[in-house]
Structures are given as structure tokens and as C-alpha cells.
Amino acid sequence: MKIDAITDGIVIDHIKAGHSMELYYDLGLDTLDCSVAIIKNVPSSKMGKKDIIKVNAALDIDLHILGYLDPDITVNIIRGGERVEKFHPELPEEIVNVIHCKNPRCITSVEPGIQHIFKLTDREKRIYRCAYCESKAKSKDR
């Protein structure tokens, strides 16, 4: 299978195998007009199998959310066909409208138009809590 190299854009590498579609929607890539390649189950010496996403456009998207979604991810920024930056996204202090609070007693369960805000309360243990009711986010709360 051949996927062309990109000239200007982003390569999200080392995605846990099978999780690329979730990231695709969480990053809002489904709303883009540019080419987006989702490559699943790529053989990896480090991970066994991995997914990769390639976005063929210089975009201004919030990549820090990746730090929450998958801590092992590598982000490569490509300009003029060259990799100009490579980083592992850090955990963001705040996540907005990515996780939804599952506490049935939380105001977010009934208030219309409310932003779902989670704040990082323990970086070491990667714990996020609802800004309204302080319930802990579970990994499947998306």
C-alpha cells in the first residue's frame, strides 16, 4: 500500500492500533476539506502494530488534546516536505467539549448549551475532573 509523503501538514504517529478513527473525530478532522490519510495496523518495531494519521495541510488545530487522548503519540510537523518539529504532546491543563461528565447529578446532564470542561488535577496519575461536579473522568467518557 502506498501513501504519498506530504509537503505541508501534520503526521500523527505511534497511535495505539485501532484508535485512529476516534482521534480523527476528536480532532475534528472529519470537517476538513484537505486530504487526510488514516493508516491502520502499520507494523511497528516498538508497538507491534500502530496507526498513523497524515493531514495534508498546514492547520491550526489544538494538538495538545492528543496528550490526553493517547500519551504515546508522536506529532511531526511537516513544512516544504521536511520535518521541522517533532514532539510528544503534554497533558493539557483543561479539556473542553471532548469528555462528557457521566455523573447523573451533574448540572451538565441537564443544562443546554453548556461547555463540558475537565481540569487536570493530578498530572502524575493523569486524572481529570469535571469543572462543575469534580467527578473523575473515565477513559471511555468521550
Partner: peptide, 22 residues
């Protein structure tokens, strides 16, 4: 509902006191 007074404070033009949220 837990967090309701906080929601109120985000839009309020006067001080909000939480008198108990859930």
C-alpha cells in the same frame, strides 16, 4: 444538580452564593 451555582456564576451580573448544590 452539582455545579449549578457555578454555571449561574458564569453568566450572572450579580454575586452568586452557592447555598448547596446536590
Amino acid at each position: 444538580k452539582e455545579g449549578a451555582p457555578m454555571v449561574a456564576s458564569l453568566k450572572s451580573s450579580v454575586p452568586i452564593i452557592n447555598a448547596g448544590d446536590g
